[in-house]
Nucleic acid binder design. Structure first.
Length: 478
RNA sequence: GGCGCGUUCGUCUAUCGGUUAGGACGUUAGAUUCUCAAUCUAGCAAGAGGGGUUCGACUCCCCUACGCGCUACCA
């Protein structure tokens, strides 16, 4: 069997890598690994009007963060360089020319204005909006003349008027379209750049892509691609169209309704392995209903044919749960260094080393004590800030006023006791008895006074970490 | 409008003609606890509708409905 080669082909037209692209990247990556093949990245930057500066860089770095390092890419290079379409313009032009010469494509001199008007008219008379074929009828001779005169032109695919085009999709089976309903697609734009359709076909063939795994949105243009393979005398690769990720309202996942950039998930404190795991469950399920699995485990048992054809809703709540599970799987040491990097990258000032107010000077030691207290309740790395911020900085304001009588007695009791868990608990219970209150209430008042909030890690343990002086200082400053 | 793809609990899914339709997230109740979590236990919750095929359909076929996608010199 031919070597398996898969690819993702993102366009640098957004902030960053779209989560939907991350999802197809995962499948492409896993599929390639499963078959000991190659996974590559090709940047499809053929739309100059939508280019976003820095986008390509962000896409590549998000891919790296996710752990999908390509075997070949614009960054890394490879035997089929270049991997950026804007650097392959000559190639596309040659093939477009070849298609014209073989009678499978033609020059079109229609202006954008004329085309817009044509579409408007068609719409008005309830006709399907398709190119009317004006330039298709042009004689080769007159076309040549116009080109020589320097008229702007595009090159269009000459789609047969009869017959049907069929292709096999490994997720959905055979899909066919009537040729007469396929538009004479522009292949080469007047600015010399190819459209997506010419670009993918040429590059996928030249780069020897064996399996095209891409989003469902491409199903309706696949027959055009199949025609191109045929006209160019090439064997088409295997197609697999992934169901699209959706918003809770079932529409195609969009930035207006959902966070879509991978960098957002990174900033919010999601772990790449959790994102990968969650994405995997969107269209595929691990045997025996196993929910938590690594990408490596997935590689072993994955089978594209078992991809669901139904478009799933992206549920951030479940991702959060999964992320929490992954956080708990980490050892304390691992989590500390992950948090360290995370806090640095996201500039969580309240947690930085300089502002720590505890008496423990060694940051790592401090983290070692704090982490076990909050690890069980974190769902994202970001939550470390709200959960443990008070260790590093005195709360600026209290969530609610505290009961000063209870607090006074508790403060006295704590002053007299020794600093260990049992003694503190005893002191607090004694204070509660003295004021005729419930121990529960005393704990609560202490918590709010010391941490500023009524929820958080266990109080006694927290006090031990803060230390006697800091605790008394906080109580006295109320 | 046309063409295409899809339709099992609120959400992600299992079932590859015979099950009390299973699991997970979320949710509800309880246990536990100094709060919140975490954990454990229990509960609620599903085959869009209609026709076929079959001894028997969630599963296969058809129709309808609904959802989504495409319908650009965007990808």
């Amino acid at each position: 069997m031919k070597q398996v080669r898969t690819r993702i082909a993102p366009s640098p037209t957004g902030e960053d890598l779209h989560i939907g692209n991350a999802y197809t990247a995962l499948i492409n990556y896993v599929f390639a690994k499963k078959h000991h093949g190659k996974f590559l990245v090709r940047i499809e930057d053929t739309d100059r009007t939508r280019l976003v500066e820095g986008s390509e860089q962000n896409i590549l770095s998000s891919l790296h963060w996710l752990g999908f390092d390509p075997d070949e890419s614009p960054e890394k290079g490879g035997p089929y360089s270049p991997y950026r379409q804007s650097e392959r313009l000559k190639i596309y032009k040659e093939y477009a020319q070849e298609l014209v010469e073989n009678g499978h494509a033609y020059h079109c001199f229609c202006t954008p204005e004329r085309l817009a008007q044509m579409r408007k008219d068609q719409e008005a008379s309830h006709l399907p909006p398709m190119y009317d074929g004006t330039c298709r009828k042009l004689k080769t001779q007159s076309s040549k003349l116009k080109v020589e005169k320097g008229e702007r032109y595009t090159i269009r695919l000459k789609v047969p008027k009869q017959g049907t085009s069929t292709f096999r999709d490994i997720i959905r089976g055979d899909i066919s379209f009537e040729n007469k309903l396929i538009d004479d697609q522009v292949l080469l734009k007047s600015d010399g750049y190819p459209t997506y359709h010419l670009g993918v076909v040429v590059d996928d063939h030249l780069m020897e892509i064996s399996h095209i795994i891409r989003g469902e949105e491409w199903i309706s243009s696949t027959p055009k691609h199949v025609l191109l393979y045929q006209f160019l005398g090439w064997t088409p690769p295997v197609f697999a169209h992934m169901p699209l990720l959706r918003n809770p309202d079932k529409s195609k996942l969009s930035k207006r309704k959902n966070p879509v950039w991978v960098s957002w998930y990174r900033r919010e404190g999601f772990l790449p392995e959790a994102v990968r795991n969650y994405l995997a469950t969107m269209a595929w399920s691990f045997p025996k209903g196993k929910e938590l699995f690594s990408t490596e485990e997935m590689v072993k048992v994955f089978d594209v044919a078992h991809i669901q054809a139904t478009a799933p809703v992206f549920d951030i709540e479940k991702l959060k749960w999964m992320n929490g599970e992954y956080i708990r799987m980490k050892t304390d040491e691992e989590l500390i260094s992950i948090l360290d990097v995370y806090m640095l990258q996201n500039n969580l000032k309240s947690l930085n080393k300089q502002t720590a107010v505890t008496k423990i000077s060694d940051y790592k030691m401090q983290m070692k004590k704090i982490l076990p207290l909050v690890k069980e309740r974190m769902k994202t790395l970001k939550e470390f800030e709200s959960l443990a911020g008070f260790f590093f900085e005195r709360p600026k304001e209290l969530e609610r006023p505290v009961n000063n009588i209870l607090l006074g007695v508790a403060e006295q009791a704590l002053k007299g006791s020794e600093w260990n868990h049992d003694a503190m608990e005893q002191a607090i219970r004694a204070a509660a008895e003295k004021t005729n209150a419930k121990a529960k209430d005393v704990f609560m008042e202490l918590r709010v006074a010391v941490t500023g909030k009524s929820v958080g890690p266990p109080l006694l343990e927290s006090l031990e970490i803060l230390g006697r002086e800091e605790t008394i200082a906080r109580l006295s400053s109320i």
